[in-house]
């Protein structure tokens, strides 16, 4: 987004909040839709008490551990599957069968095996976010120009050097496309795994669930806003890292 669109976005957000506040003040919308003022003051209270951060921290811990696993395994296996044909053939049927499955359906099974624990949640997030990263990496490797590999071989590079110094950088733009999708899914599944299953523990999803059961929509809005903020923030971080690593690429934006 360029500067001009950013300005428009800011104006749009302010206008929407103003309309919401006006409708709430005039009591034209039901009370359960709360108002920006109430949501804002609730958020402030939760920030001051530190409650928001403890919940956000445990949500983030689950998300980031999963994302790290996705990044490492997705890229390593994706490169292996893209570069070594037998490895690619080996993984293909697993990807074909498992990729279209709504992984959330595995939650009840994982819960029976691992209990209602972080293991279950991290595993579920990992299973969901793994495939986009793996598939994009593999596609990226397939898209590397043959002459790059040949030129490296010509200069005496070993298999490992080719993988590390040619295949990896050349497929990095595609890998980042996949990582961006994976990161988005990480937060979706973080929320979902916290929503379904249990009502005790820490996490932004739990906060929503608890608020829901208490009928406190204002608190729900606070949690939703915070989840959205985290999703947005980490997407920005990923894009910044991408711009740094892909400074040479035409589509670094």
């Amino acid at each position: 987004m360029d500067k001009r669109l950013q300005k428009i976005a800011a104006i749009e957000i302010v206008v929407l909040l103003a309309i919401w506040q006006a409708l709430a003040s005039l009591e034209w919308i039901p009370a359960y839709l709360s108002s920006p003022y109430v949501v804002g003051s609730e958020m402030w209270a939760l920030i001051v008490s530190g409650e928001l951060f403890t919940n956000a921290a445990s949500s983030l811990y689950r998300s980031l551990v999963s994302f790290l696993l996705v990044m490492v395994l997705g890229i390593v296996l994706g490169i292996a599957a893209g570069f070594f044909k037998p490895v690619g053939i080996f993984f293909q049927p697993i990807v074909d069968v498992l990729n279209p499955v709504p992984k959330i359906a595995l939650l009840p099974i994982l819960m029976v095996w691992f209990g209602i624990s972080d293991t279950t949640r991290i595993l579920l997030i990992f299973l969901t976010a793994f495939f986009p990263c793996f598939i994009a990496t593999k596609d990226g490797v397939h898209g590397v120009k043959q002459v790059f590999v040949w030129a490296a071989e010509n200069m005496g590079a070993s298999k490992f050097q080719i993988l590390w110094k040619v295949i990896l950088p050349a497929s990095l733009p595609k890998i980042f496309d996949g990582l961006r999708v994976s990161l988005g899914l990480t937060f979706v599944m973080m929320f979902s795994s916290e929503m379904i299953g249990s009502s005790n523990g820490l996490g932004l999803g739990f906060m929503i669930l608890l608020a829901d059961m208490a009928g406190r929509t204002d608190l729900m809005f606070v949690s939703v806003f915070f989840i959205a903020l985290l999703g947005f923030l980490f997407d920005r971080i990923l894009l910044a890292v991408r711009a740094r690593l892909l400074w040479w690429s035409e589509n670094r934006g």
Binding site: K145, V147, F148, W150, A151, E153, N154, M155, G156, V166, P169, A170, L172, L246, W248, S249
Partner: peptide, 17 residues
């Protein structure tokens, strides 16, 4: 392949990064 034979290709094989 080996560095005893220097190969130049039709399409650029320079690493863009």
């Amino acid at each position: 392949p080996g560095p005893d034979r220097g190969m130049m290709f039709q399409e650029s094989a320079l690493f863009p990064w």
